[in-house]
């Protein structure tokens, strides 16, 4: 969604204003027609995006009030509680711990994923690369595997009792690290996301590399630049905007990590039901049946994500898009 939106916004030139005659037909063509064409989009946006958000914000200010034993009808009602849910969410040590975990997870994952994606994109774009088409598909393919499926696949590989890796390590008499132990599980999950995410980011970077006019490389060659020089001094700066964009997406995806740890959780003792912020939201809403505090926590997460993305763009935008101003 985000990609298409930002791309079209960047690519579409501002339409030249049309000169047209006055009167009713002009009103129709200038006001009614565009809105009529926008209507399906607006309706869908309001119904499936805006309304749920407004409702979630409304819920976040409510809670259930039970009286006595709470059995039977009328023993339970919904009351307005102001910011109580927000205060509780922010003061919850579990929530703070889950935030800390995803930040560490992002610190491990994002540089590794983007670094590999950039490396692969540059290698595929370099002159003299063989089997580029095959490699591109092979690197991209894991992205087509849904996160739940890939987590199940990797889960099997991480379980010492059924994993071929552990079997090989055992036969060789080596001690294999227990990836699902609480010290390493974060890396295990980052590995799954890395496996699934490198291909997508690689394609984005590779596509923008393909858009670079080759004359630039020829000029660099004439000036005596090597392939490595060209890659580091020309290609990387030119595709900086797409690196920024992929970083932003990866950052957001990091904060929203849910499927991988949720799928792995039943396989080990090292993942709690509030391991990431979204897992906590899910648990509060659907296991503990407290949608009100879950709504408050999700609003906090949404605002934090927005703020973080904004800060990130502020910091890198000047450097990445500087030459365009």
């Amino acid at each position: 969604m985000t990609i298409t939106r930002s791309r079209t916004a960047a690519a579409t030139p501002v339409p030249a204003r049309r000169r047209s005659g006055g009167g009713a037909s002009s009103f129709r063509s200038r006001v009614l027609t565009p809105y009529a064409m926008l209507a399906p989009g607006i309706v869908l946006f309001l119904a499936f995006m805006a309304a749920p958000i407004v409702y979630a914000v409304y819920l976040s200010f409510q809670k259930t009030q039970v009286t006595g034993l709470g059995l039977g009808s009328g023993a339970r009602k919904q009351v307005f509680v102001g910011f109580e849910n927000y205060v509780a969410a922010l003061a919850d040590p579990e929530f703070a711990a889950s935030i800390g975990r995803v930040l560490l997870y992002g610190l491990v994952l994002v540089p590794a994923m983007l670094g590999l994606a950039l490396l692969f994109a540059l290698l595929l774009d370099a002159r003299g690369t063989r089997a580029a088409g095959f490699s591109r598909v092979a690197i991209f393919l894991p992205y087509a595997v849904p996160a739940v499926i890939s987590s199940l696949l990797w889960g099997f590989l991480y379980l010492p009792g059924v994993s071929p890796f552990y079997f090989v390590f055992d036969s060789l008499g080596w001690d294999a690290p227990e990836i699902l132990s609480s010290d390493l599980v974060l890396f295990g999950i980052a590995n799954i996301a890395l496996w699934g995410g490198v291909g997508f980011n690689m394609i984005v970077m590779y596509t923008s590399l393909k858009a670079v006019p080759t004359e630039i490389y020829e000029a660099a060659k004439l000036d005596g630049a090597s392939e490595v020089d060209i890659a580091l001094r020309i290609k990387v700066p030119i595709i900086a905007p797409s690196i920024v964009m992929t970083s932003l997406f990866s950052l957001i995806a990091t904060l929203q990590v849910f499927a991988e740890p949720t799928t792995l959780r039943p396989l080990s003792n090292s993942l709690s039901t509030s391991w990431t912020p979204l897992m906590k939201v899910y648990r509060d809403a659907f296991t503990r049946d407290d949608i009100y505090s879950a709504a408050a926590t999700s609003v906090v997460i949404a605002l934090a994500t927005l703020l973080l993305s904004f800060l990130f763009l502020r910091i890198v935008q000047k450097r990445a898009f500087g030459q365009e101003d």
């Binding site: 090292s270 993942l271 509030s274 648990r283 296991t287």
Partner: peptide
């Protein structure tokens, strides 16, 4: 009781830590 779900999810978290 009326909040078995809460007690059970607390079991998952707390005993996972203990078993680990």
């Amino acid at each position: 009781g009326p909040n078995v779900n809460v007690a059970f999810s607390a079991y998952n978290d707390e005993f996972a830590k203990a078993a680990e």
